[in-house]
Design a protein around this nucleic acid. Structure first.
Lengths: 346, 346
DNA sequence: CTGAAAGCGCTAACAA
DNA sequence: TTGTTAGCGCTTTCAG
């Protein structure tokens, strides 16, 4: 239908001007002066011919592709990646950029990840977004440094690159705070067994928040299991069979909370009347669909993707420098999403 | 680190040969003959200098970018898109292609979708994959036709473009068949109220399968609601309070099945002992995490993405023609995924 | 106010 | 067996 091989040159001859003029008016170049009539002429002819610029040629000439590379781990296995992509895509689109996406298995070797980055580099992307599936430390392919880059949802082991991560501490505090606010004093934590930042930070925030509320945070019950439904179920069974049974549970994530729901049901406990529960992640599919709806803490995936794209573009366009951002990861808030799994204790 | 502005020309001078020779050996051009020594020399020099081709320049020259455009609806809101992307990405990568992704809201106007396609066209992608969020009919932007394209998970209202869709009929038959095989004769269907192909085809297959088994398919109970958890819950409550209560339920999707689980629990019915349930979609997060695990039918998103990329590339490379495929959508199987929600009737 | 021409990095006729 | 050279479509300096 449109831009069928018609180039700037075709427009030029059709409009009876030079290619320079066409280029100038189509790109609205500030310095060169072209008469309004010529401008109109050029524009209408371009329109007529269905001219569309060849971004490849532009890029070759200007050394700017207007493309951002996004290497994302496990695009398919978690809904999280989708939100990062969406945030990045919308931020990028708003500034005239597009995304080249490469999926990489979370288990990929350094070399294979390096090859992915290499592919992006060969296509001359202006910058790279490197996104991981969950908040953790990653060893980065060395060639990542050859172009402005920012890490999403993880920090580099070498720690010399701009990164954006979720506020684990704040999120956990919000979760526990909501329980406290509802009047609970017997609160347990169903934690993950993986050794990732979230595990440590959420636990720390859990205890600290209780201590600050004048409760015994260090003595509060904590049970850990694999961060899946089954693990949540088992940990909950254990924690509820303990000495002083908690009246509220903070769960490492929504899947574990789902397990907690099942355990509660088996024990004849009604949520939230007999047991209040808060999760973490806000996985819509689970949190919104459990009964009663799960109050949980949202991870800012969309926001991280958008933040990363935004700052990457600033760096590319020389509007800002990434170096200061590389000193410490930027932390984005994890807001509490209230549904119906919290009530005052009996 | 690598390919820092070093071009073919740099390699040429460093190796003491012409650019042609470099180009020939690096691209392993069949016709031109270069001595083995020169070859090695060139290769090692290229390696040494950290040469990496500039795909932009190559593309400009060859009129082939090796990029596939993927416009996907609602990347973030459904896990399905992720699997399509993954399938397409892996198939593409295996053949040396990369993906440019553009997200488009499901509600986007024709013009805005046309603009998305236009962006891809300006970047001179070799072909376009147009993916929708769920199986339905779409009106395509007119400029889609200017480059080889294939539709994923939908068919065009105009119906003149290659498309790949799930086998709704076969999937539904497999689901109902599993129930029949377990010995059920009283089977109900919890359907969706949306007017999409899946709604009609699954219903049709449901009735047909029962009829073919010698049961009264046309008289079998069917209750429809919004295809969410709540809808599944309500429809199940209704269907189970009817005259001859079914001993097994085929649910439109996993979310509705999740609602069925809740309804069953409230009614004091144990799954699968008192009630067998089959879902559709195989949304891991739900199906694998319900208790007991939900037997369901998987949608071939990964496969559709891979199939589409594969055939698109064949067309681009002239190895096959898309036209014959445009006559009828290609249908990919929906396999039954067995978990633990089916048992023999009491 | 407008145009000629160089060149971005590469491929591929064509020459040698 | 290897080298010269003309573009691919565009931007931009420098001259009119």
């Amino acid at each position: 239908m449109s831009n069928k091989n018609v180039g700037i040159k075709d427009v030029a001859v059709a409009a009876g001007v030079s290619v320079t003029t066409v280029s100038h008016v189509l790109n609205e170049v500030s310095y060169a002066r072209v008469s309004p009539e010529t401008r109109d002429k050029v524009r209408s002819v371009a329109e007529e011919l269905g001219y569309g610029p060849n971004r490849l040629a532009q890029a070759l000439r200007t050394q700017r592709t207007g493309m951002l590379g996004l290497v994302s781990e496990e695009i398919a296995t978690t809904p999280h990646a989708g939100r990062i992509i969406l945030g990045a895509d919308e931020a990028a689109k708003a500034r005239g950029y597009n995304l080249m996406i490469i999926n990489t298995p979370g288990s990929a070797s350094l070399e294979s990840r390096q090859a992915d980055v290499q592919a992006l580099l060969e296509r001359r992307v202006d910058g790279i977004l490197y996104a991981t599936m969950y908040h953790r430390n990653v060893e980065l392919p060395s060639n990542l440094g050859s172009v402005p880059s920012v890490l999403v949802d993880s920090v580099a082991t070498a720690g010399n690159i701009a990164a954006v991560i979720p506020d684990e501490d704040g999120g956990a505090r919000a979760a526990v705070g909501a329980l406290l606010e509802a009047g609970h004093t017997q609160i347990g934590f169903i934690n993950n067994t993986d050794d990732v930042p979230a595990t440590r930070e959420r636990l720390h925030a859990f205890r600290a928040t209780l201590n600050e509320a004048g409760l015994d945070g260090d003595g509060a019950p904590v049970e850990s299991e694999l961060s899946e439904v089954q693990g949540g179920y088992e940990a909950t069974l254990r924690i509820l069979s303990g000495q002083d049974r908690p009246t509220a549970l903070f769960c490492y994530n929504d899947r574990m909370a789902m397990g907690a729901y099942r355990a509660a049901a088996e024990l004849g406990l009604t949520i939230p009347a007999d047991l209040s529960v808060v999760g973490f992640d806000d996985q819509e599919l689970i949190a919104a669909n459990l009964y009663p709806g799960l109050t949980t803490v949202a991870l800012p995936h969309y926001e991280m993707g958008a933040w990363a794209a935004e700052h990457l573009i600033d760096a590319i366009e020389g509007k800002a420098d990434l170096d200061p951002l590389a000193l410490h990861p930027t932390i984005l808030g994890c807001p509490l999403v209230r549904r119906d799994s919290i009530a005052a204790p009996r």
